[in-house]
Design a protein around this nucleic acid. Structure first.
Length: 150
DNA sequence: GCCAACGTTGGC
DNA sequence: GCCAACGTTGGC
């Protein structure tokens, strides 16, 4: 069982949206590294921090769990969809995604706060220039961040 | 709104 | 295979 951090812009899809929906297909990932994490490594039961990006106060705001392993992203086949990909076919889909289930909302742990903890300095989220929307979180960092939510 | 950092595309 | 140009991300 692994730990992850997934980013979402709250204007597009927030932790409250997930709380309402209970589970959601994580469609629209169009980055190979992020896709490969989902396709090759994510298992049902893996846990992930839900992070709000590109907003007033970037922060981890909740916890989610993988509820379905990777399957083809339907939006890549939809000619009218923003995420349509003309190079993808049903036989050889290019993009896949998992489903996430809502676990809980937490006290926000802001990006600024995360940066203040030396033991978290190696987190990929905090790496210079990081833009990846799905990053692994190592178990020690996971446990440490849980204590910051208390 | 700015801009640094990064990924992708496409000409050669 | 190289690399310039371009588009996107996301903090500030």
């Amino acid at each position: 069982m692994r730990y992850w951090l997934i980013k979402s812009e709250p204007d597009a899809y927030s932790i409250d949206d997930l709380a309402r929906d209970k589970t959601t297909p994580w469609t629209g990932i169009r980055n190979y590294q992020a896709r490969n994490f989902m396709r090759d490594q994510m298992k049902v039961g893996d846990q992930a921090f839900f992070y709000h990006s590109n907003c007033d106060e970037p922060a981890i705001v909740g916890i989610t769990e993988v509820s379905a392993t990777a399957y083809p992203d339907a939006t890549q086949f939809d000619r009218k969809h923003k995420y349509f990909d003309e190079k993808a076919t049903r036989e050889t889909p290019r993009w896949l995604h998992v489903d996430f289930r809502f676990v809980k909302k937490t006290k926000p742990v802001t990006l600024a706060e995360l940066r203040g903890h030396k033991s978290l300095a190696k987190m990929q989220l905090l790496a210079r220039g990081n833009r990846l929307s799905i990053t692994p979180v190592d178990p020690d960092a996971w446990k440490y961040i849980l204590t910051l939510m208390k």
